[in-house]
């Protein structure tokens, strides 16, 4: 095992080669905000919250997909980075229809958590109030697109872990939308095994268990991690 040594926020760190900056920071006890990253599935570097500065470059680097290298000096929480993160979260709140008071994920939502973490208390941007629908055709689950931040965690967990590939992204730009099957009602998609992994993976209240009401969507991190890492770690019980 080859080891790389680097500095994160001035702290000396030694980690295995190939480790992402995000994981190296975690090992150092530094939490970098993320939304699209999910342990156990591939990274897409889409939310841009995890961007960090690296000495010697005027570009910013997504820490979820950037590997450490020898002698690297990383800064994770400069004033500018914090301001960027705040603006990104503000943009997300302005883009969808987030009415936390009536949301299944209220109090248990990663978008809320990140907003609190970056100190966002209002959005300076225009609320878009997009027209989005709710699909309740699946017997056990529902999806409310009003709360979707297009992180594609559902897409990846379903394709890469469950192997069902029910979800995809359709359309582009502001009209981009998560679709099930060939843009069919979720309940009509025979590939869905009703495993519930997408419910666990979704950081917001978009995908939920039917019958849960305001604030009832519980998020058990260990469960998601078990679902996504069990195969790698040979933890399946049968």
């Amino acid at each position: 095992m080859s080891v790389k040594t680097l500095k994160i926020n001035g702290i000396d760190v030694a980690v295995e080669a190939g480790t992402s900056i995000l994981h190296a920071a975690q090992e150092t006890g530094i939490r970098i905000p993320t939304l699209c990253h999910l342990e156990g599935v591939s990274d897409v570097s889409a939310c841009r919250l995890c961007l960090v500065e690296i000495k010697g470059s005027d570009r910013l680097f997504p820490s979820c997909i950037t590997e450490v290298s020898e002698g690297m000096e990383v800064f994770t929480h400069t004033e500018q980075l914090q301001e960027n993160r705040k603006m990104l979260v503000e943009l997300l709140f302005a883009e969808g229809n987030h009415v936390c008071a009536v949301c299944v994920a209220n109090g248990n939502c990663e978008l809320q958590d990140v907003a609190i973490e970056v100190g966002m208390d209002h959005t300076r941007f225009n609320y878009q109030f997009p027209q989005r629908d709710v699909d309740l055709s699946h017997p056990q689950f529902g999806i409310d697109h009003n709360r979707c931040i297009l992180c594609t965690r559902c897409v990846r967990v379903c394709a890469e872990i469950e192997g069902a590939h029910v979800w995809d992204v359709a359309f582009r730009g502001e009209n981009a939308k998560i679709i099930s099957g060939l843009n069919q009602p979720w309940g009509d998609v025979e590939a869905c095994t009703s495993c519930g992994k997408c419910v666990e993976a979704c950081p917001t209240g978009t995908i939920f268990r039917k019958g849960s009401t305001t604030g009832e969507k519980e998020r058990d991190r260990t469960k998601v991690e078990f679902l996504s890492l069990a195969r790698e770690k040979h933890q399946w019980t049968r």
């Binding site: 841009r48 990104l88 943009l91 997300l92 302005a94 225009n126 878009q128 992204v169 582009r172 730009g173």
Partner: peptide, 21 residues
Amino acid sequence: CRDETCGKCVPCRTGTVQLYQ
């Protein structure tokens, strides 16, 4: 740019809409 953005990353997908407005 607002019409051409693919929509994958947050700043470009939502930022171009807001800048245009």
